[in-house]
Every structure is written in C-alpha cells, then in structure tokens.
Nucleic acid binder design. Structure first.
Lengths: 243, 243
DNA sequence: GGGGAGAGATGCCGC
DNA sequence: GCGGCATTTCTCCCC
C-alpha cells in the first residue's frame, strides 16, 4: 500500500499516465451530488489532470473530473483517500481506497488528432457543392453562416428566386430541427420584410410528429444521407490493412 | 508480443477487464468515419464488450465502442490488429498495434449503482412540495407527468385558479426551454378550449435572448436553484470521511 | 423499437 | 466569459 502511494506521487510529479484498480467508494459534489458504494473500479489519471473512474461494465465513466483538477493522496486514520479538486468549477471527488489491486504508470507519446468525416458540416458542404440534391434550380448563397438570425446551414434561392433556408441533420430530424428552421425563417421574413421565405430540412429521415409539424408550417423535407468522404482515404491507407 | 496475444485471448474468454497501452493507429467506421494516426494510447476492454481508446490527455475516449461488440486479435503479415465489430449497429474499429507497452487483466467485482441528486427531477419534486417557491397561492396538481400534451414538469393552478404549466431547468434556461413551454401551453389551450393558460420557467437563470422571447409570449420566470439533497446523506456517512 | 426529453451532458466556435 | 448548436452525443422512459 505504501509502495502505491510512492508510485502515485512520483507519477503525478512526472505527469505520467496512471492506471490502477481498487476496491473503493466514491463521493462527488459539484453540478450535482453523487455517492457510489463500495466495489472494484478502474482509475485513470492523465497528465492534464483528468480523472476517470470506470466500473467493470458500461462505456461511460461512473465518475470523472475534467482536465485541470488537482489530485492528491491523503493517508488518514480512516484510511487512504484519493482526493480530486477542481478549484475553478467548485467540484470535487473523494475516493476511499480499501485495497489497491494493481497500478501502472507510464509516459505516453501522442501528438495526433483524429480525422473525422460524415458530420453535419460535411453534409452542408456536400449540399453546397451539389445543390441539385436539394432540388432542381436551387442556387446556394452561403453555408454554415453565423448570421444575426442564427446559425444557418445552407442559404440560397430556389428556381423561382425565393429565399430558402436549409437545415441539415446528419441523423433523423425531430422537433428541434423543425423549431430551429421555423425560427430562422421567421427571423429572415421579419428582417428582410419578405413574406415568402421557404424552409427545407435535409436529413436521412424525419420523425412522423416532426413531419406533421413541418407540413403544418408549409416547409419541405429532402431525404439526404451524410457523406462518408474518409472511406476512400482509408482504403488508400495501406498501413491500416485491408477492409 | 506473443505473450500479449495469449493473455488477451484468455482474458476475453474469462470475460475479465483488460487494460493495455500500445503504440497504434486506429480506424473507425459507423455513424461517422474516423482515422487516428500513430501514437501511444491506453486501451480498456470490459467484460460486456465495451472498448475504450484513450489518448494521454482529455476526458473523452478518442475512440470507443459500446457494450456488445465482438473483439478479436488478428495476427497478419501486416502486423497485429485488434478488431472490434458491432454487428447490430454496423460499426467497427480496427487498431493496428505496432508495440504493446504493458497489459493487465483482472476480474472486477462491483454490483453497486450510483446515488445521484440535484437533477431536474429533484427540482420538480422540490417545487411540488414547496409550491410557494413558484409564487404565493400556487397549487400543484401533478409533476413529471407524461401527458398527451408532452412531458410536463409541474402543472397546477395559480392564486386566481388559472391553469399554469411550469417548466424546470437545472441550469440556465435557453431557447429550448421557452419553446418547450410554448408547445405545452398551446396544446393545453387547444385541448381544454381555455384561452388563459399561464407558463412559467423555473431555473437558476435564463439567457437574455430566451428572456426576451419569454416576455413576448407573456410567460413568467422564477429564479430557483436545484436542491442538493445528498449533502446531508453524505455528511452522515462516516465511512467516507470528513468533508 | 422509435420518439421525446434530460444530462454532473461535452465540445466547438463566435461574439 | 456566455450563447447557440452539433455530438460516433448517452441515457431513461413511455408509447
């Protein structure tokens, strides 16, 4: 147990990644309040002051503290505590460690960022470059624009020259998408003094309730799948093998 | 490296928790597409078929697969690959492992669930029990109710007997909160044929834009902090020490 | 299983 | 810093 303290404190000083498992109980206070009774968990401490506590199942940490928390070990008469404080956010986690099963500390070298495709951004790029996917005669004017009316994915004119707002969703559109679209359209109507501004949702699909709402407002829906532009890139990566 | 394969395969068979770090590159395809170039990462595999890939900084996994994926090791002429397939979701992750730095496998015992307080649910419970926090004369009729109008946090009558919908937010209220409230109020007006249904947002604060929208619709705002009911509970827990 | 809404949401960007 | 909005959101609950 003492060897554990020494290793943790040395690794914290060297800003190494720390992984250990322990029989423990955990308390959290901050934006909410939580208490986790005794059991075995996996702890991860990163050099940026991130703390993760994982149970043996589930993809999300049962407790966590974001980058920038101060972590200390506190050996008291009541036992050994791992204390984690986030001064800026007035949050803290205390874990009482009844027994430590294993520990590993290591310096990890990684300067890479992940390349990501198929996002809503990629989708609006695709529609901007291929406006006929929205409808024949559509002329895009701008995309991904932070206007004073809000953040509009694609903005343009239809075959009749009518101003048209396109709201993209990379997955099924719901109420939120309809309400966002309605907000943009009504603000542009007001601001431009134009009675006829069209609204279109572009998404792989739309929920029945949202579709009903959309129809009532006189807006349109276009079925569009998000692009997967990385597929070719990855096929060209011989290093990652065959897919 | 061969010892690594043996340990992983034995741990997968025994459904133990597996932790290892490796110099690797990672590809993902599913809801989106991603590629992560070579670097050191920490891998966690849980007995329920969860895979997490962590970089040395940041609180979120850079790659992950939820519960239920099939994990295999594949030794090819191109090198060693960790392959993770999620048949139901048509998602996969392939990690090419250039070098493994350490590995630990262990069976973890944990049957506990976390007790949580300070949620929106706790907030509406508090307002239901203390209706004067909304306004004098407010009489609550229901809370957290799934009605055919939607999910209404607190529903009741004001001092004049007017039907009133209260929408709770545990943090700052924004546009969504105003739109939710407007939707509930208009549906109840329609359904009951009542012209006068009031709407109130109860939250710690409200954004300026949302407040403007709220005022235009004739709705009200009440500043309320979410309760922290676990504080006393945890103070009573002598086992977790002194706060 | 789909839809709707909350979450200790998180993260990003723009003002 | 706040605000708005996407997210491989995740999670729960109800229909």
């Amino acid at each position: 147990m003492d060897g554990f303290s020494v290793r943790v404190e040395e690794a914290l000083r060297k800003r190494e990644t720390i992984v250990f498992s322990a029989d423990c109980e955990v308390a959290y206070s901050g934006r909410a309040e939580a208490f986790l009774p005794r059991g075995d968990r996996l702890f991860i401490i990163k050099r940026d002051g991130t703390l993760l506590v994982h149970q043996p199942t589930g993809s999300n940490p049962i407790n966590y503290m974001k980058e920038g928390c101060a972590i200390t070990l506190d050996k008291t008469d009541d036992g050994l505590f791992l204390r984690c404080r986030h001064q800026g956010k007035r949050e803290w986690i205390d874990a009482r460690l009844f027994a430590v099963h294993f520990i590993h500390t290591q310096d990890l070298f990684d300067s890479e960022r992940q390349l990501l495709g198929g996002s809503e951004r990629d989708m609006s790029d695709m529609l901007f470059a291929n406006p006929s996917m929205i409808e024949p005669g559509f002329v895009p004017l701008s995309r991904e624009e932070h206007t004073r009316f809000g953040f509009i994915d694609v903005f343009g004119t239809d075959a009749q020259g009518t101003l048209t707002v396109v709201e993209c969703k990379r997955c099924a559109a719901g109420h939120n998408a309809v309400q966002q679209l309605a907000r943009y359209v009504s603000r542009i109507r007001e601001a431009k003094g134009v009675g006829t501004v069209r609204g279109i949702i572009a998404a792989p699909r739309i929920s029945a309730a949202a579709r009903k709402h959309l129809d009532e407002l006189g807006f349109g829906f276009v079925a569009v799948e998000p692009p997967k532009r990385l597929e070719r890139y990855k096929r060209d990566q011989t290093s990652i093998g065959d897919f």
